[in-house]
Design a protein around this nucleic acid. Structure first.
Lengths: 237, 237
DNA sequence: GAGGTTCGTGGAACAATGTTCCAATCGTTG
DNA sequence: CAACGATTGGAACATTGTTCCACGAACCTC
């Protein structure tokens, strides 16, 4: 069905799923997550809302497709180096992509478990395999890495969304830091002592340190020779 | 303002912010994230939508308040044991709460960075401090732990939402596993080999293994004596 | 090439949502 | 007891996702 014939066009410029998804990404990028409406999309494509529904089932599927487009683009280039380096490059690529397109975080949570997540899982999993992790722990370790990557990126995106493109980052961090310093002395004893660290922290750097922390944890389950051992964490019931 | 006098009631049962939030939680619990509408809430409270707006600014604030109510309840009881044990108990409590109320994941991402997140941050941070992590790394390490906990819980909740209350979990996992086994041999070589592990995995168990992995990573930055060292991860540029 | 058929189109219409507005009403205060 | 302010709750509004359907262009058959 819908066999694409020669370079013939229908009336305007041939409405296609790809063109719709591209327009959706553009709309999401400069109007935020709430900026994607079927009416705005219709106008951008010079058509009516009804036409779009012939190519996309509903808004959820559209958001998933837009999310997948961005993630697939990020995952396209192959990093090189040690497995650890590849994990860092992979993770940072996703982090930066979600930072640039904050709506991707919501799109990943919403659905897209169908196509997008397996893509990420595969890329990360191969590095876990090459790390020398024992086979029976591949699924768990890969899942943990993916969960941290997407979780940290999503929370960073949530902060970025509060910030908006117009608010000054340093100013915002300073305000939050000040708020923390004024919290209750007893109830928030710990938070108060790290208020200054929060003021001067760098999000990407912190994210990478988290990746290194997880990699270090994985390292404790693998002997230098590659012989696997159980995690070195303290007693568990 | 709004001084609560003696046990007098207005016309019905005295509409209060607390009563509204409680009703919102109940509504979210048995109708899902989309079940919270001001009309359904009005009906549940036997009032009109306008009345609610006198106690709550908008839907976003309402969702944040509902989220905070659930999280605060979870964080109420103090665990005991080693710092590691406390982190596990804390994390598992949050994981279970988000699993029971999947809409909390969305609520945490949306806003509530105001009150809820600092609460979690403080609780986790105290354990990081007791773990012997050097002071200048408290903020980063705590952030990473919180990011993993909330990220993993959120993704688990997303899966649970697809599942719904009526779909059989084993059946669903089996279906996904079969889908993975039928993926492209080259493009998804890794994912195919762990399809059977995904079929038989336990979400809570996997989450705890993730916590242990991060804790093990943290352990590499702290000597047994408590003397801090840098992470044991391989070279970084 | 002409006719019929199919499919994409796009605008109107529908139900439901968050939010605002305001008159009626209650509890409290002078 | 009267006046006032806070609370109430229902109607109204703008906007959303989605459905429906008449129109018309492209394709296939003869």
């Amino acid at each position: 069905m819908a066999a694409v014939s020669s370079p013939s066009r229908r009336r305007t410029e041939a409405l296609s799923r790809e063109r719709i998804v591209d327009a959706a990404v553009a709309l999401l990028d400069d109007a935020g997550e709430g900026g994607l409406t079927f009416r705005a999309l219709s106008q951008a494509l010079a058509t009516g809302p009804g036409a779009i529904y012939h190519h996309v089932a509903n808004k959820e599927e559209l958001l998933a497709a837009a999310t997948d487009a961005v993630v697939a683009g990020t995952l396209a280039d192959e990093p090189d180096g040690t497995p650890q380096d590849k994990v860092r490059a992979l993770a940072l690529g996703l982090f930066d992509a979600i930072d640039a397109h904050p709506w991707v975080a919501g799109g990943l949570t919403a659905s897209s478990w169908q196509a997008t997540s397996p893509r990420i899982f595969e890329k990360v999993g191969r590095q876990v395999r090459d790390l020398g992790v024992p086979h029976d722990r591949w699924f768990t370790v890969t899942s943990v890495l993916v969960q941290y990557i997407l979780g940290a990126a999503a929370q960073n995106a949530a902060n970025a969304r509060i910030l908006g493109p117009d608010v000054d980052r340093d100013e915002f961090l300073g305000a939050v830091s000040t708020t923390w310093e004024e919290l209750d002395t007893d109830e928030y004893a710990f938070t108060r002592t790290v208020a200054d660290q929060m003021r001067s922290h760098d999000d990407r750097e912190q994210f990478l340190e988290g990746i290194d922390l997880v990699l270090a944890g994985i390292g404790t389950t693998v002997r230098p020779t590659g012989t696997p051992v159980m995690p070195a964490s303290p007693s568990r019931s």
